[in-house]
């Protein structure tokens, strides 16, 4: 079953040339897709369009068959009414590079507030689930801590728990380890690998090529706002066909 698709998305920022030049991506249930590509190629912009943080100039955005956006008759994008978007927002989660935890909320409140205040779920049930999630993230003893008291790796695990507490059907990650000290990236990659084993549907923008190869089912190589090459992760990373992919991977290995 297709969980997410974005079709022929175009996006430019006021002055510049197109950041996304009509690219498409579709993700099936249980699939883990890694997006790699040079800096400035539009990876974050793609995730931001997918998570409604940015509006596309044109294109189509669909979650589980429900259209969030499509091209109107004049070729410009039309977004679904607020109510539909609200429903769609509960289908995805986004983990940011720099966590964006709420500094004035404890760890537990960071994780439970949106399920209670936005999804209007039962407090007891949400707390129970949150504590289970924190346990899974190895943060049982940090429930009452505040974000500033945690290491970067711990903060990122809280932000993953916060996203998971909304019970999303798909989780997007934008370079979840890039803001971390090298010795802390491991713990995040470990958490993501566990999620992959549980068949969580994920789209991960990452510079950790070896991690992408192991965890992702599919790797997408992007450059200058288009997909240059995509396919089985082993194949793309070990045996790329496109020259640009080869050049990019070669540079990373230096």
């Amino acid at each position: 079953m297709e969980i997410f698709s974005i079709n022929d998305v175009r996006k430019s920022f006021s002055t510049q040339t197109d950041v996304l030049c009509g690219m498409s991506l579709s993700v099936q249930k249980g699939e883990v897709v890694a997006i790699i590509g040079p800096s400035g190629s539009g990876k974050s912009t793609l995730l931001r369009c997918a998570t409604l943080l940015e509006t596309m100039d044109s294109g189509e955005l669909v979650y589980e068959g429900i259209k969030a956006a499509w091209n109107g008759p004049d070729g410009n994008v039309v977004y679904a009414p607020e109510e539909t978007l609200k429903k769609i927002k509960s289908k995805f989660g986004l983990v940011f590079q720099n966590f964006n935890l709420f500094p004035h909320y404890s760890v537990l409140k960071n994780v439970t507030d949106a399920p209670i205040c936005v999804q209007k779920r039962q407090k007891e049930e949400v707390y129970e689930e949150a504590l289970t999630l924190l346990k899974k993230m190895g943060l049982s003893d940090k429930a009452d801590a505040y974000p500033f008291q945690l290491s970067g790796g711990q903060q990122q695990r809280v932000s993953i728990a916060r996203a998971l507490a909304m019970n999303p059907d798909i989780l997007f990650f934008d370079e979840p380890t890039s803001a971390l000290d090298p010795e802390l990236t491991g713990e995040i990659l470990h958490v993501i690998r566990d999620l992959a084993e549980e068949k969580m549907t994920m789209v991960i923008v990452t510079h950790e090529i070896e991690f992408a190869r192991i965890v992702a089912n599919r790797v997408v190589f992007m450059d200058a706002g288009v997909i240059i090459e995509e396919g089985n992760s082993d194949k793309i990373i070990r045996n790329p066909e496109n020259e640009r992919t080869k050049a990019f991977l070669r540079k990373l290995n230096l």
């Binding site: 998570t51 409604l52 943080l53 609200k86 927002k89 509960s90 995805f92 989660g93 986004l94 940011f96 720099n98 964006n100 935890l101 709420f102 949106a114 205040c117 936005v118 999804q119 916060r162 909304m166």
Partner: peptide, 14 residues
């Protein structure tokens, strides 16, 4: 207040 706070809130549906 950093824009990331607005973005996190928006993605969570606030």
């Amino acid at each position: 207040v950093p824009s990331g706070q607005y973005e996190a809130a928006k993605v969570l549906g606030y």
